[in-house]
Amino acid sequence: MLEGKKIMVVEDEALLALDLAMTMEDLGAAVVGPCYRLGAALDLVRKMKVDGAILDVDLNGETVFPLARYLDEQGVPFVFHTGRADPASLLEAFSRARICTKPSTPERLAACLAEALADADRRSDNQNYAPAYAQDGSSESSQQA
């Protein structure tokens, strides 16, 4: 389900990041990161395209929101991995995001992320049936390639 996908891992707990990265690799994904800080993650995501992301919400006193907004604009699906008690406020700001509460097994996170990727695929399919279909042939051409 995540095979061949480029997945970004943003997590300030190094061990957790390592565990996530290892699990993603086990599932056949290519890990981008792991990133421990917001700045590094933003730099990285601007340089290379990613297919999905796992985001810890609190990064050493910073929130991951600037990165989440950027990914949202790019249409990249992501999962919030957080110990916060108020998922409602997260969904308010990022309606398409999925939330996986800490502590959670890497497998569950992976499943959650796979769902998010599937959602995003459905959304882009719907877009392709829209009247703008003729102008936007990018997804079709990539399928051919």
């Binding site: 707990e13 061990l15 957790l16 390592l18 565990d19 290892m22 699990t23 609190d58 110990g83 916060r84 008690a85 509460t101 800490k102 502590p103 959670s104 097994t105 890497p106």
Partner: peptide
Amino acid sequence: SHRVKNLFAVTMSIISV
């Protein structure tokens, strides 16, 4: 509560890695 959740997550990672 945040820290406890985080610690459980780290603990799980210690076990798995």
